[in-house]
């Protein structure tokens, strides 16, 4: 999953980035509200972690702007100021969740998963698709009741497809969410991952939509 982290403090940002990477999130870090606007327009971010104390603009007004222009991605607000009114204002400005600094890494990860799950319209923490069951926070996958251990990238690819359900994803979109925007990727790497997924699970798990991209195969083709 692709997270946009908007945080001006370098030390905090590197900690969050490293912590989320341990849980297979791809994190793009920006320091200013200006950079955050640009990043949100160009990167396929599934969720945003937004620090309120930004140098160029208040995080709250940035969030309000985003909501006003119809950007609906889940946003978790981080702040080191702990007044309850600030918390309420954050939620009113369109935040989906609120976490005070300092927080527990596990709590941040759990909340991110919950946000992504709710954003995908699921109430259950487990994602099921036919014989497939996937627990995003535990990174645990079973196929017909048996545990399958997939390499990190393949699991990310599968997760992306599961979250998008029947929507078609372009190859670029998938690459972005697998690698983030600052890693050079070989052109056929995605094809290799897709091939592996089909071989390990079922040929129908990834469906190619000619000229457009890929989507999750429907349950009856598995």
């Amino acid at each position: 999953m692709h997270i946009l982290l908007v945080e001006d403090d370098e030390l905090v940002a590197s900690g969050i980035q490293a912590g989320l990477a341990l849980h297979d999130f791809t994190v793009d870090h920006v320091r200013t509200a200006g950079a955050a606007r640009a990043a949100l327009d160009t990167l396929p971010s599934d969720a945003v972690i937004l620090d309120l104390g930004l140098p160029d603009q208040d995080g709250m007004s940035l969030l309000r702007d985003w909501r006003a222009t119809g950007k609906a991605m889940p946003v978790l607000v981080l702040t080191a100021r702990d007044a309850v009114p600030a918390r309420v204002a954050g939620l009113q400005a369109g935040a989906d969740d609120y976490l005070s600094k300092p927080f527990d890494l596990d709590e941040l990860v759990a909340r991110m998963h919950a946000l992504l799950r709710r954003a995908a319209g699921r109430a259950q923490p487990l994602i099921t698709h036919g014989p497939l069951r996937f627990d995003p926070s535990a990174r645990h996958l079973t196929w017909h009741g048996e545990t399958v251990n997939l390499p990190r990238r393949e699991l990310l690819l599968l997760e992306k497809l599961l979250h998008s359900r029947s929507a078609v994803l372009s190859a670029e979109q998938i690459k972005d969410s697998l690698y983030g925007f600052d890693t050079g990727v070989e052109s056929n790497a995605l094809n290799v991952h897709i091939h592996h997924l089909r071989r390990k699970l079922s040929p129908g798990i990834v469906q190619t939509v000619r000229g457009l991209g890929y989507r999750l195969g429907s349950v009856d083709e598995l």
Partner: peptide
């Protein structure tokens, strides 16, 4: 809290 957050997270 900001450095404390960095310490805790790291």
């Amino acid at each position: 809290r900001t450095p404390l957050t960095a310490i805790k997270t790291h």
